[in-house]
């Protein structure tokens, strides 16, 4: 099963899509940063700059793996496995 990557809010406009799937080999071990690098290669520098600042995730950009914020997992080194759902949010707020 591939990893499902979902984009929200302004990222949908920037990338022109809501979600995509990334295949992971059966023996492949993948960290979040590896997945992000694949996305940066696909979508370019503007997307990279919206996500990263000095090699870390920008403050107020939220990335969830199966609904758990990577800030409370292992940040950009959080491990990924088959069938994981990665959700990527730009800064949002509401009320």
């Amino acid at each position: 099963m591939p990893i499902n990557v979902k984009f929200f809010a302004t990222f949908r406009d920037l990338l022109g899509l809501k979600e995509l799937e990334l295949e992971v080999g059966p023996e492949e071990t993948l960290k979040l940063i590896d997945l992000l690098e694949r996305l940066f290669q696909k979508f370019g520098e503007e997307f990279r700059n919206k996500i990263l600042e000095n090699g870390n995730i920008r403050p107020q950009v939220n990335i969830m793996i199966n609904g758990r914020n990577i800030k409370f997992l292992d940040e950009i080194n959080s491990p990924l496995k088959d069938s994981d759902i990665v959700a990527i949010f730009p800064p949002v707020a509401g009320g």
Binding site: A9, T10, Q60, P91, V92, A93
Partner: peptide, 8 residues
């Protein structure tokens, strides 16, 4: 940062 998302 949050202003852009709220506006959009």
């Amino acid at each position: 940062g949050v202003t852009e998302a709220l506006t959009t």
